[in-house]
Amino acid sequence: MKTTMLMIAMMAGSAWVSSAQAQDAWPTRPVQMVVIAGAGGGSDYVFRLLSRELEKNTGQAFSVVNQAQGGGVVGMTTYTNAEPDGYTLGQMSPFAQYRVLGQADFTSESFTPIALVNMDPAAVHVAADSNLESLQDIVDALKADPTSLTISCGGTCNASWDIPFVSLMLDEGVDVTQLNLVPAKGAAAGLQELTSGGMDVVLSSLPETDSLREAGLVENVAVFAEQRLDRYPDVPTVEEAVGEPVTGGTWRGVAGPAGMSPALVEAIEAQVKAAFDAEAFQQGMRDRGFGPVWMNAEELGDFMAEHEQQTERVLGELRQ
């Protein structure tokens, strides 16, 4: 029996050598996708949709590995420390705040960007029975007294939803260090605080408010996007509401550890693009109100650098 095992090991060993040589024929074995959120969440969903298409197209298994601990630091650490052989990839989402907050030391150099597949703008919500009726009301109130409103970050603060909001307030000349930003355990928990009267404003994406808006309990006053979203034609953009063209939100892409070869990146990018273009992926994204947005490796790299700058500016101001 021991000899059988040894034989299997040897066979496997030789197969491994040959696969390392034929790198452009990616993938020749199963790929791990590290998702920095728990099973069943939005990120998990996007990556399972994508993995299903990749599995279909390549004939290899793509296993989604959920590592949500430490707000995503654990998952990003896992895949940035992996071999840059294209068989451990991971979720690329806002990462610059980790370094500013002293949680981890990722920079855009820690990753090899591959592609962006989704972007969801942040939005501003108030309770239906609130005195605040528009983004202008909120800006006016905060200008008069920055501490007058309690604002839920719809998740952890210093993150995707509050950074564009604070950025807008900086432009409007509000003293942002005085803002009363309160973290929540996810958008649902923040929205619950809104309906129970514990909060004045909640920041999150639009689809997350669907059921409470239907119930007539929550109103969306503005979305941090360049244009109104097809799914929410009655929600004005920030520019329409107050005249400042501020955008921002969360985004999800595919990346790998630093040091992947350009040829390998190209091969993976092509496969991800095919999966992204598949009708099943597009339909799946629409079903849940996620915005499918494509960026190739190069565009994603530029975008990540831009994200680092915006985050450092806003967090620098907040933490003065």
Binding site: I8, A9, M11, A12, G13, A15, W16, S19, T28, R29, P30, Q32, G59, Q60, A61, S63, V65
Partner: peptide
């Protein structure tokens, strides 16, 4: 059940085993 258990020396052929 697709728990990502490492395959070790079987990694190269694990595609057939998942």
């Amino acid at each position: 059940l697709h728990v990502p258990l490492p395959w070790g020396p079987l990694t190269a052929v694990s595609g057939w085993l998942i």
